[in-house]
Amino acid sequence: MKKLYSNKLVILSLVLPGLVLFLFAILAPICLSVYYGFTDYSGMGSYNMIGLENYKTLLQDPTLRIALRNSLYLALGFIFIQHPLALITAAVLDKLGGRGENFFRCVYFIPNVISVAVIAYLWKFIYNPDFGLLNNIIKAFGGKGDINWFSTDTAIWAVLIVLIWHGFGWGMLIYYTGIKNIDPVLYEAAAIDGANQTTTFLKITLPLMKPVIQVNVTMAVISALKQMETVYLLTNGGPGNSTQFTANYLYQQAFKAFKYGYGNAIGVIFIIICLLATVILNKIFEDREETKLKKLEKARAKGAAV
């Protein structure tokens, strides 16, 4: 058994496909990005090594700052608008039971299976100043309904609304699954103690959902950083750079502004930011868990001593 399970040749044959894919599709491009990040390559012809010049420009680049600020807005929108709504909806849905529960769960997730391309173009029409749905709704409620949603001041909010709307079903489903995993005995106990639904939600559901919320918050921040496709189709960063996101910006720099080298430098910084964000968020949540565990242990030790 041991011999069979440590046969080097067999092991190699098993991990080789995965490793080759990793090297070819992930590691090699990153190395290439690092290399081109040190050049003034336009995408065609010859180029020079220019050292850290791209990174120096990058530090002063106002567009990158806007892009990161927009990611921050999006992350805040996810965390403070989308997730609370998703969590509450999930808790309400959990109480419904029967066929209605399955029906709503199914309906909420439908936008998630639709291509970003459809979603982006659909919302372009919804925001359309002439016949768009949104202005028509405002008219139906007696407003003027002639708002240009993609003006410099409002465009970022228009983009955020689409992203929050599109991802809602996903967040809802994860919270819903988490709530379903809570032991129903706890709810019964609460009901016997005469707790109403709000107290039950605040005192039982919410604390027990903490790990799920933490995972969801981490994912929200990361996906806010990585956002590209919706913005690319909806506004392509415009008007001006008001709705710019990092991934879209590096793409534009490389393929539209013909600064391939600079685009790659942004890419390198982008990867570093994403790695850092993941590590930091995991650390924050891990530490909290650990201190909590320690507290619990201490309390237990005290209890045992008494």
Binding site: F24, P29, K226, Y260, N264, G267, I271
Partner: peptide, 13 residues
């Protein structure tokens, strides 16, 4: 790793 960071180098490759 953000997928979109690999768009430029992968295109080259």
């Amino acid at each position: 790793i953000p997928i979109h960071a690999t768009l430029l180098p992968n295109y080259k490759i």
